[in-house]
Design a protein around this nucleic acid. Structure first.
Lengths: 225, 225
DNA sequence: TTGATAAAATCATCTGATGACTTGATGAGC
DNA sequence: GCTCATCAAGTCATCAGATGATTTTATCAA
């Protein structure tokens, strides 16, 4: 059943203020009305106004300075983007992460240092099998290996988003999927490292793509059930 | 001069609570101490506690239910991820967006509907030149065309992130770069649409990649100056 | 077991008061 | 005329107390 959308005052006050800011009612750097004025404008108590303002400060839209006033810091709000990404479904998330993974491998082929290669091979060796220390521990080792590839790309935006997707996907899988995804073998993992080592971006990209394909197929199959 | 890091009580209270939550002090779904208890635990007033809790609610970490209590909703905080992405530099952002763009074209080739193709071609026709209606208007038309490709991918995660990067990159370019990036001609744009129309993902990916390459090179050149 | 009722717990909201900080005006001193 | 200390007003920060609304739990009768 659809729960009634009951929201509280502070939240709708924040939403109301947010709409005004995004709508450009005040320019960036401009000072918004003070707390007592907002109290009258929005017809809520000062405490409620403060809670709303505090939320917008934490979102980076406002900047409250004691003794001076509250100023508009930005008129674009990106805070909801990742929430929407989270709600976009497992397949979409997986595809997006795969896109980043492929590009990361491509960049890693071009930019990797000897230390990067060493890290990757040592993590691959340490990865071992599920038998060693249980499922969770193996999962963490596996993630550490893949992350070392992404790190070698030297692209902080990709690294950051890759981390986000990894945790989001993990969370979703834990809560929704009970079937198992196929785990590529050591050979497939090693192929990626070798391809990156050659320095050929197309080869590296192809290796990751080949790695991902069967997993994605199985994921589609599980989700369509 | 380095400004003194002066933060307010409510903020540090939120940070303190956030640390506890991320540290796993309470499990997901568990109820945290009530407001008066937190008041004593943290040695701040109830108003301050409420402001802190409200922020964590807005970040998706907590869930406050009137009459019942405040519960942990998630123990992973992704709210800072996009901020870090924003600070990752123009080159990194461009590369990440390109990765999404390439994958989007790949998926668009597989999934596009006749309506998608029609939209893309009509937007490409409407794109025109810089001469029509000025630079800003042309930029918006150009963005609309590229977005139609991403939309045809049917992947909401990619669409969402693509939008984020577009606005972030635009913001950065406006504020830092004064040189101009090369604008691929109509032919290069049309090539992408044609490649998608064939339904061959590799062809579509290659078209976007070829499209991006000279722009990225010029960007690197401008940034290295 | 079911259903109604009452009581307790908890968050939501308002009000008033005081403190801390910033800003601008004022005026003394040079 | 310029610099600097001082003061006053404006503003956010924080606390305290009280009341309302909602949910949860306990109780008890049918």
């Amino acid at each position: 059943m659809q729960p009634v959308n009951r929201t509280n005052l502070a939240e709708s006050t924040a939403e109301s203020l947010r709409t005004e800011i995004l709508g450009g009612r005040w320019a960036v750097g401009e000072r918004i009305p003070n707390e007592t004025a907002l109290t009258e404008l929005l017809a809520v108590s000062r405490g409620t106004v403060r809670e709303a303002v505090r939320v917008l400060v934490s979102k980076g839209l406002l900047d409250a300075r004691q003794g001076s006033g509250t100023y508009v810091r930005s008129t674009v709000d990106t805070s909801g983007a990742l929430d929407r990404v989270k709600r976009s479904g497992l397949r979409d998330q997986w595809e997006a992460r795969a896109a980043l993974d492929v590009e990361a491998a491509r960049l890693a082929a071009l930019r990797h240092t000897p230390a990067d290669l060493e890290r990757m091979t040592s993590l691959l060796r340490a990865r071992g099998t599920v038998a060693d220390g249980g499922r969770d521990a193996f999962g963490r080792r596996d993630i550490a290996f893949h992350r070392s590839i992404v790190e070698a790309s030297g692209n902080r935006a990709i690294i950051e988003l890759y981390d986000f997707f990894t945790s989001a996907i993990l969370e979703t899988i834990h809560s929704t999927l009970n079937g198992d995804l196929p785990e590529p073998d050591d050979r497939a993992h090693a192929a990626i490292v070798e391809a990156i080592a050659t320095g050929d971006p197309d080869l590296a990209a192809a290796a990751v793509r080949a790695f991902m394909a069967p997993v994605l197929e199985e994921l589609q199959r599980l989700l369509s059930q």
